[in-house]
Amino acid sequence: MIINVQHLTKRYGDIVAVDDLSFAVEQGELFGLLGPNGAGKTTTIRIAMDILHPDAGEITILGQPPDRAKRYVGYLPEERGLYRNLKVLDTLVYLAELKGMSTTTARGRAKYLLERVHLEEWAHRKVRELSQGMQQRLQFVASFVHDPEVLFLDEPFKGLDPLNVERVKELIAELRQQGKTVVLSSHQMNLVEVLCDRILLINRGRQVLYGPLAEIKRQYAPNTIRVRAPHLPATLPGVANVEHDDGAFNLTLAEGSDPQEVLRGLVALGVEIQSFEVAPVPLEEIFVAAVREEEARYGLA
């Protein structure tokens, strides 16, 4: 276990930003910290980065409290920014040195990373001369220039054009191959769900869903099937309701029935199936459902 969070609580005056949150991140994992804006993601990360102190609970990274783990942790904050008047290479070297890297090692590593993101020719130019996309790439590599074991990326795709989104995704994949642990926070759940092994979904500072993404998806498996066919019999086994919709049918499954069984049933009945589709459930919808469920349980709705 690389990161261990136990009963973390953080308040700002009367507002509880993080409310008794517990989770763990394993070695080499790509962990998604997801939730809408204001859910407490950035606060949680800032506590892990030793920028804020929790009111209760604790975080350990590599078994150390945050102030001791700084050397091994990288951070891409949601609010981006670099020294505009500093040279590109000097920026990376300075940030690596602040993490405790020696000047020589920092220099070598910075040069390597600049090559990696095709900025080597800009090494001796000032940051403000770079285009927006170049600055974003520079900012991204700045978060792991000191070769950390754990990397926190807060909204890494915010403000990126599609091309740079792909580049950043590639870099994240590369980091994983190197065995680094990555915690990725985002409110754009659909954009990051494909990347993550496990996720923690939070809302109002509290855990909503937590676990392997595949398992969560299974748990919230769809109960709707879309079938395109000339016509359907009025009653079907395992189907509670049939709705006609623009030349196709939306079938609401009865409780406990399986989409594959329904398909076999349709074939057995000799229905001329043109298409059969189990509607994928986006993470966002799962989130909404889970929040509703929780609110109903606590009587908050």
Partner: peptide, 17 residues
């Protein structure tokens, strides 16, 4: 003020006390 305005301060305080 410059570090605050450019927001790089957040990276700095995550690296040093």
């Amino acid at each position: 003020a410059e570090e605050k305005e450019s927001r790089i301060i957040e990276i700095i305080v995550s690296s040093v006390r």
